[in-house]
Amino acid sequence: MNSSFSADENRSKRKVSNRESFLTNVAASLGRPRMTDTVRRPAWKHTVHLDTLADRTPEQLVEVLKEQCLFIHTQVIESTPEILQTTLDDLIAGCGGGPVIRSGDPRFAQYGLAFPGGFVWSEKAGREENVRRAEAANVALVFADYALAESGTVVLESRPDQGRALHFLPAHYIAVIERGRIVPRSTQAMGDLNRRLEAGETLGSCINLISGPSNSADIEMQLVVGVHGPLRATYVLI
């Protein structure tokens, strides 16, 4: 085996991706020539994914979300735009205080929120600084793009003002969910994102579906909450 690896030794810069021969071989394995016409997805035989929880009212969906969060070690706090600042300040204090890092989401300004001394993820700060601040942060604050009631999930897209590591490096994770953004399940959120993509929109390079804090059961199947990502997660409903 080593000999076949060393035969490749000298080809350090590969320009060829093997794409054509590879795909022609795949088509041959399927017993036909390459597919060149556009393939349309068939009508799927079932609509179970669309039907699940589809009949729930917005109020019922809030209840579904709250109940699910009991199972995923995630605290849910009900607040209002008026008292949101106080709610978040209390939560931060409960986590042991700062440093705080937040996304640059315009909704922070829209709701008149300010976190003196906190850091805001931004394009201007650059890779090193953003990551360094996220790693040093005790609390991360973000706004959800969608929330999925069934699974207790927040969906967030990466943007210049909202990086990937923001969701993973800080010890505590707080996501604000506007009630209007709660949908029944992953079906609606992924359907919406796919429609936006097909309409020609460029999506962020990273779409995160986050359901509570990080965890692992790799040691004797015993659940440990808080492994590589956040140790605790909190959702604030407004």
Binding site: T153, C206, I210, S214, G229
Partner: peptide, 9 residues
Amino acid sequence: KLTSYITVM
């Protein structure tokens, strides 16, 4: 229902 992190990247 879903694991903690489902990511499209």
